[in-house]
């Protein structure tokens, strides 16, 4: 009796696994095709666009279908109604302390005896920020927890979002709007580079 039960279980696993795997393969192809269709639309324009591909856990900076640079995503989570592929336009980048530009005082360079480089550089970019898209969706980027400061920061952020996101979700649903939020964890240098590279009004493809 036990042998029969085991055999039946094994048989069902055998026949159900290929069906599940085939479904997954098909789903991936559908997503890939949607992504390619959106990329083709963006590649027609002389602009740089960005692909956040969660299937591959990569961020790509692209133009005309060419991969200019890529970053590895360490972790990803989503909040709100699911979708496969969607194109968003960057409305603004929001951060606690915005990197400040130096204002040159005319004639000041001549007076200086020692040259001191005053410039906005990659190291001045934030590692924890939100990209707000047109339509209200938000993408929060934060560094991986390394050391006391980033671990504490990540703890407070997670607690804050845990409380506010459900409230925002209910509020937007009541208003008839969809609410979408995404969290991405990158290493510190990549987080800075992504902040630097994504200007306002640029197109971002999100593939989940």
């Amino acid at each position: 009796m036990i042998m029969l039960f085991r055999s039946l279980t094994f048989f069902f696993i055998l026949i159900s696994f290929p069906a599940y795997a085939a479904d997954n393969v098909m789903e991936n192809y559908i997503k890939q095709n949607q992504l390619l269709e959106e990329e083709i639309k963006l590649s027609r324009k002389p602009d740089i666009y960005y692909v956040f591909n969660m299937l591959e856990m990569k961020i790509y900076i692209k133009a005309r279908g060419i991969n200019l640079k890529e970053f590895s995503i360490q972790d990803f989570s989503r909040w709100g109604k699911p979708f496969s592929v969607n194109v968003f336009k960057v409305k603004r980048k929001s951060t606690f302390i915005k990197p400040a530009r130096e204002t040159i005082k005319p004639g000041d360079e001549k007076k200086k005896d020692n040259f001191e480089l005053e410039a906005l550089e990659l190291k001045d970019m934030p590692t924890r920020y939100t990209i707000v898209f047109e339509g209200g969706a938000t993408l929060f980027i934060r560094p991986s927890s390394e050391g006391f400061i980033s671990t504490t920061g990540n703890f407070f952020y997670s607690s804050y979002k845990l409380l506010t996101r459900p409230l925002l979700m209910v509020w937007n649903t009541l208003k008839g709007k969809s609410y979408k939020a995404f969290n991405i964890v990158l290493n510190e240098n990549d987080a800075r580079a992504v902040y630097w590279s994504i200007p306002e009004k640029s197109a971002v493809i999100l593939c989940l």
Partner: peptide
Amino acid sequence: GFYLGSDEKSPD
């Protein structure tokens, strides 16, 4: 909010 926000169904 949690129920609405953590919809895991894939549209595909």
